[in-house]
């Protein structure tokens, strides 16, 4: 069927911009529409800088934190529940005050954020690998393989991630019977988060794969005789990564929130290795007795981290969506 693009104007504009001489890689990135839309949105720039600072603070926690909250030698129960420095009875050593065991809250937040971030990244990567592989296979193979994978995804999608994570956690606790819970908690969290979030990747990748599969460049590769696995990895995968990046960013925020929630509910990280959620859970007990800072400061740190990541994800989604440009 003959086809004439309705958007001849856009096409013409693009034609003209392609007349520019080919520049180096860095120059091309700096000149790309993506980068320009990034600079245009001031909020996004602020969010990117803030995210970077938060990441640095948490990954460099052992060097930048004023105290080591895990070093029992430096902790004194006499310093417990000291308020932040602008309040009465404060201690200049503890800017944001201390928790119930006398640990410096600011340092605790840095270390806690580090644990939250590591769990977030690991679970996002695990979920992405699982989801992308299954989505590629389902979308490319079609037929029974596809219906099986997607039925599983559909059933799972009817349950919110938090519920699945809770269930997996409960089952794991049942299997390991409470032994070495402190040791396993970290891995159980990653597995349960990954198993709760893979569906989104799989569905998105499957959808894009089904579109790409019918595009003529894939047919051309098949006519050349290239085997399916190579077509999937070399040809289709790079073309479906755009939406995956968006999901991964938004899921990083979601994973951090879910991890915090699980820890808050007492089924995540134990108090000996506190993540932000654990810190808030500890602080929650002291909320009514006036020691509000123990819960509120870690909570604000969590909100700040998640908000910035979400801002980046939001911008990325709009910037990569050609329809909204």
């Amino acid at each position: 069927m003959p086809y004439v693009s309705n958007e001849e104007v856009t096409a013409a504009v693009q034609d003209r911009s392609s007349e520019q001489p080919a520049a180096g890689r860095v120059a091309r990135i700096l000149d790309s529409d993506l980068f320009h839309s990034f600079l245009r949105s001031k909020i996004t720039v602020v969010a990117a800088v803030a995210t970077l600072i938060l990441f640095l603070l948490s990954f460099l926690a052992p060097w930048v934190a004023p105290h080591n909250p895990f070093d029992l030698a430096t902790i004194s129960i006499l310093d417990a529940r000291v308020p932040p420095i602008w309040q009465e009875y404060s201690d200049p050593r503890f800017i944001l005050g201390t928790d119930d065991q006398g640990r410096d809250l600011l340092s605790g937040i840095f270390y806690g954020m580090r644990i939250s971030l590591i769990i977030g990244f690991c679970s996002v990567i695990a979920a992405a690998v699982l989801g992308i592989s299954l989505g590629l296979v389902a979308g490319y193979m079609g037929g029974r393989v596809d219906s099986f994978i997607m039925r599983v995804a559909d059933v799972q999608l009817t349950f919110p991630a938090i519920l699945i994570a809770l269930l997996i956690d409960g089952i794991a606790a049942g299997i390991f019977g409470g032994v070495d819970r402190e040791f396993f908690a970290f891995y159980i969290l990653i597995v349960s988060l990954a198993l709760s979030f893979w569906v989104q990747y799989a569905r998105t990748v499957r959808g894009s794969t089904m579109v790409e599969k019918n595009k003529e460049y894939v047919q051309a590769a098949r006519v050349i005789g290239i085997p399916s696995v190579i077509i999937m990895v070399r040809h289709i995968l790079p073309n479906v990564m755009g939406p995956v990046m968006v999901i991964a960013t938004i899921n990083l925020a979601l994973a951090i929130v879910t991890e915090a929630t699980l820890s808050f509910l007492g089924v995540g990280m134990p108090p000996t290795q506190p993540s932000l959620g654990t810190l808030i859970a500890i602080g929650n007990d002291f909320l009514y007795s006036g020691e509000w800072w123990i819960a509120i400061f870690p909570g604000l740190a969590l909100a700040l981290l998640v908000l910035n990541v979400n801002l980046l994800g939001d911008w990325l989604r709009d910037a990569l969506n050609p329809k909204l440009r």
Binding site: I280, V306, L307
Partner: peptide, 18 residues
Amino acid sequence: SLVGISLPTFFIGILLIF
């Protein structure tokens, strides 16, 4: 709305209680 989806449910609860 962005702040709304970024604040974890339990923390919203804690803030409201506080």
